[in-house]
């Protein structure tokens, strides 16, 4: 089966070791994780994993099932790029003299980037978008002698209506109930 880029989203309890339990599901199948973002959701105690992986659909289905099988994972689902809106955020550190000497204003405007900090000897530029967008800006800024470049993992939101909101709002408040 042909390989494609998939985004897996999982919701879990916020427990030590769960990240490891999820990543070994990929390791075991010799799958490389392209990007991984973990953060808290609007519901206290629930975390969201966004994992980008290149694999066959068959494998993605099985891996997603294995993630959802973990006792402390609430839900897991996979998406192709067309199913979701997704972004990465990139930060670029540029020496201040280069930023002043060359026309940085035009670059910021054309690439819809922002200046987020100015220090004595450098400035920091921020851009959100797809990998191709942040990469393009990287190429444009290269002559500005980029001191540092960093890009986040992907975050995504599905194009289906109300998917997360309904699900999380229906969850019991307590993680577990005793007899």
């Amino acid at each position: 089966m042909e390989k494609e880029l998939y985004t897996i989203t999982a919701f879990s309890e916020n427990h030590i070791g769960l990240l490891n339990r999820i990543t070994i599901i990929f390791t075991r199948r010799h799958l490389n994780i392209e990007s991984l973002t973990v953060s808290s959701t609007e519901m206290k105690g629930i975390h969201r994993f966004t994992i980008v992986v290149e694999a066959s659909l068959d494998l993605i289905e099985r891996v997603t099932n294995q993630i959802e099988k973990l006792p402390e994972v609430l839900r897991a689902a996979w998406y192709v790029n067309d199913d979701i809106v997704y972004r990465e955020i990139a930060l670029y550190k540029i020496p201040i003299n280069y930023a002043i000497d060359r026309n940085i204003e035009q670059v910021l405007r054309e690439y819809n980037a922002r200046l987020v900090d100015i220090q004595n000897d450098f400035v920091i530029i921020e851009k959100t978008g797809h990998v191709e967008d942040t990469e393009k800006l990287y190429d444009v800024l290269k002559p500005y002698k980029i001191l540092q470049f960093v890009r986040s993992g992907r975050i995504s939101i599905s194009k289906h209506k109300k998917e997360l909101a309904t699900y999380l709002s229906e969850l019991p408040i307590n993680e577990y109930i005793k007899e």
Binding site: S12, P71, E72, L74, P172, N174, Y176, I177, K178, E179
Partner: peptide, 10 residues
């Protein structure tokens, strides 16, 4: 000690 009756993720 009380046994567990249900867990929301499971």
């Amino acid at each position: 000690y009380k046994k567990i009756k249900s867990i929301r993720s499971y």
